[in-house]
Structure formats: structure tokens, C-alpha cells
Write a protein that binds this DNA or RNA. Structure first.
Lengths: 226, 226
DNA sequence: CATGAAACAACCAATATTGAACCAATTATT
DNA sequence: AATAATTGGTTCAATATTGGTTGTTTCATG
């Protein structure tokens, strides 16, 4: 038990949850029996059971009579592993699936407020062509804003994940070579065109732009490898 | 009170708020009882109670008679929140972006071993039309296998995520209504056609099938709402 | 002196914890 | 195959803990 804290079912639950989140207990692993946990935490078995009940409610563990209590929580470190195993080119393959659909839904579902925020992000982007790090951040914000235009929470979440990988990947290293001021301004021409297409609900045009955008990102990447 | 001196309910509130914000007390955790806090802060219980009242006003903690004072402040980690906020229809919108690209990459990159495993999954699927729960599990396995055919770790991860949401969403409830034996057999016709298209590297055909598949899933869902 | 914050104290009602015994399902042992 | 050991599920009553409440006292401040 952490110093300064007092026992009780809620706190035991929090500690076990932390232990699971931190990987002390892996997915599928069996927790110590309730009677052992009771001794470890210096409390009664009923209290431990109450704590486990809370974890079970959260879907962190599952209990089986006669067998034990098992971790059902699936750790997100899977994503980091996938990210490390994924090359920038493969990432573009993934984005080529996600982003056109994102644009499609954005054109369909964006409200006026969404479009206003998208414009703000665009203006910031256009003021950032002097520093490729600032540009990268503004670029992320713009695309995230675009994701929010879809009004689809899952799509927003998905794009966040892909975006984070984008930060981890090799891309991060070659970024400085690719993003010359001229290139950034080229990208921004596309960004503005994309914004206009979304604003005027021109689906065909928007899809065409994002397609070109991804193609260019791909060829830029291939060029940087040389 | 003289300026420059410490003490008083407001200051205790500030200290506790800091402790919570810094993670000394996590969400759901029970704070030490008022009597103990009074001792550690070297003040009376009344003063501590006043401090807790302030925190309660801020929505940082909740108090329950006979139980304790609990931290309600949440450090946003909303992977599951996105899932809960996403309707089955919105999920299909996401899948409509991911799955065609998945099929495209699968046709491009699948090796012979991948295709063999895909066939195994397909056969299992075709033996599962008598129970919609078994069918659902086999269906997941088949599509996951398809994801692995892409040889793109990020795509595999992505599909896993989408798949998990599929399990959480409302879909889970209406599944029983949609998946009649006849419907499962229809789906399997498509599954087999998809398998054949991947095996023979017929990209056009594969994309057409997955498009129809998603369209049908969408209309089935819309039908089930009535 | 009047005021208000704080300390101290006693009690209430709600809740939690404990300890025990026993059940039911699973797993290990013989 | 039969048996024993292990493990989660359940119930109950006694006890401890905890926030809520009320009242009095102390003391620095204006």
C-alpha cells in the first residue's frame, strides 16, 4: 500500500488497476487468489472481493469459480509495437485508407462551427512555413480538425492514433529534409484547396486533393530515402 | 489572519487539490478520513471539513456518509469513450474506409501461407452457420486473418481496434435479430468470393465484394432498427 | 467589545470491514 | 476414476469506521 493512504476496497481497487495498467499483470494472467490478496493488502477477504468487483465492473478482470481471477485488460503497448514495426511507407498505405474516408465524411457532416475552426487551423498553418517543426504541429492540428469535422468519434480517435504513429516513425527523422519552405508552401496550397472543397461541400474535388496529397507524401518519402 | 502566515481551510484545500492534480490520489481513490487529515495538517476536523467542502464544490471529490471522501477528478484517457460514443452506423462509416484499403493491400501483399490460413478461417466460418455467436467469432477471425494478409502491422492493429469496438457497440445487441441462418449463409457466399478474389489476386473483384458487403451490413443494420 | 475563524468535543446515522462458515466449480493429486 | 485441495460465490452478525451535525470555547482582529 502506498504510504499515506488508508486501506479500503476503493483503494485496493485503484492499486490493482494501476498494477495492471503498468503491466505487473499481463493480459490473460491469473491474479493471486483472493485469500492471498487479502493478506498482501492486510485486509479481509470480503474487502478484497469488493475491490475485485469494482475491477470486474470496469472490465479489467474476469472471475471464474474454482479457477481464479484473470486479467482481461488489453494493454495499448500493442500499438507502440505495431508502430515500431511499421515503416513510413506502410503508414502511408494505412493513411490512404483512412484519410479519404475522413474527407468524405467531413464534407458530408461538417457544421459551420467545424468549418470555422478548420479555417483557424489553416491560417495558423499558413503562418508556419518558416519552421518545419511548427509546421508539423500545425499540420497535425489541421488534420485533427478535419477529423473532427466528420462528427464521428471513432474516426477522431482513429486519426489520433495514426497521427501519433506518424510522430514515432522514421518520418520524424527525414522530416527536416523534406519540409523545405517551398515544399511547405506547396502543401499549404493543397491544404487551402482542401479547406475550400470542404467548405463548399465539393466532395469530388476534396477526394481528388487528398489523393494527390497522399501520393505526394509517398513520393517525397521515397525521394528522401535516396 | 496576518498576511504571510499559513493555515486555514482555503490553504488546506489548495494542498489537497494539488495532491490530486499531481496524481497523489487517483480517480476513485478514497481520501484519508477527515480525522486523519486533521492530524496530518495539524488542524481541527472542522477546518478540514471546510476544505473538503470547497473541493466538493469544484467537483474534485465526492463524499458519502459512513463511507469516505472519494476522488472524482478524471485524467482523461478516452480510448473506450470513443467506442461508447460511436454508433454502429458510424462504425460502418469507419470500416468503409479501412476495409477496402485492407482488401487492396491484402490482394497485393498476401503470401501463400497467408492465403492458406485465410482458407482455414473460411472453412471454420462455413461450419458455424448454426449459431450466430460462433459465427460472429469466426467472422472476426476471418477478417483479422485478412488484415494479416496485408503484411502491414499497423493495418492489423487498426483492424483489431475497429473489431473490438464492434464488440462493444449496440451492434452486439441487434446481432441476434440480423444473423439468421439464411443471412449467415449469404454472408459466407461473399466471404468465399472474397477469399477467391484474394487468392487469384483479382483486385477489382475483391474491392467490389467488400463494397457490397459493407453496404449490406449497413442496410441490415438500418433494417434491424425498425 | 464584537466578530469570525478555528479548535475541541460529543453524538448520530450510514456504511464498511471483519471473521466465520459453508457452497459450487475447477484443478491437482493419487 | 476417485479423491483431495484450491478457488471464487454467498450469507450473516458483530464491530469499526466515517461523514454529518450541533454546541461550546479560544483567540486574533478590527
Amino acid at each position: 500500500m502506498r504510504p499515506g493512504t488508508i486501506g479500503g476496497a476503493a483503494n485496493i481497487a485503484v492499486e490493482l488497476r494501476q498494477a495492471i495498467l503498468l503491466g505487473d499483470f499481463l493480459h490473460g494472467e491469473k491474479l493471486p487468489p483472493e485469500r492471498a490478496l487479502a493478506e498482501t493488502f492486510g485486509s479481509s477477504r470480503n474487502t478484497v472481493r469488493e475491490a475485485l468487483r469494482l475491477l470486474e465492473e470496469d472490465g479489467m478482470v474476469a472471475r471464474r469459480i474454482g479457477s481464479g481471477t484473470y486479467v482481461t485488460f488489453k494493454n495499448d503497448s500493442d500499438r507502440d509495437e505495431a508502430a515500431e514495426a511499421t515503416s513510413p511507407l506502410e503508414l502511408i498505405d494505412v493513411r490512404a485508407g483512412v484519410e479519404p474516408q475522413m474527407v468524405r465524411l467531413a464534407v458530408q457532416n461538417a457544421g459551420n462551427r467545424d468549418i470555422n475552426r478548420l479555417e483557424v487551423a489553416l491560417l495558423r498553418l499558413e503562418r508556419s512555413t518558416d519552421d518545419y517543426r511548427r509546421f508539423s504541429r500545425a499540420d497535425e492540428a489541421f488534420h485533427l480538425c478535419l477529423a473532427e469535422c466528420t462528427r464521428n468519434p471513432m474516426m477522431v480517435w482513429l486519426y489520433r492514433q495514426v497521427n501519433e504513429v506518424r510522430g514515432n516513425a522514421l518520418w520524424y527523422g527525414v522530416r527536416g529534409k523534406i519540409l523545405t519552405t517551398a515544399r511547405m508552401e506547396e502543401y499549404n496550397t493543397e491544404h487551402r484547396a482542401l479547406y475550400e472543397a470542404v467548405r463548399t461541400r465539393n466532395m469530388e474535388r476534396a477526394l481528388s486533393i487528398i489523393g494527390v496529397h497522399l501520393e505526394q507524401a509517398k513520393s517525397d518519402l521515397l525521394g528522401a530515402v535516396d
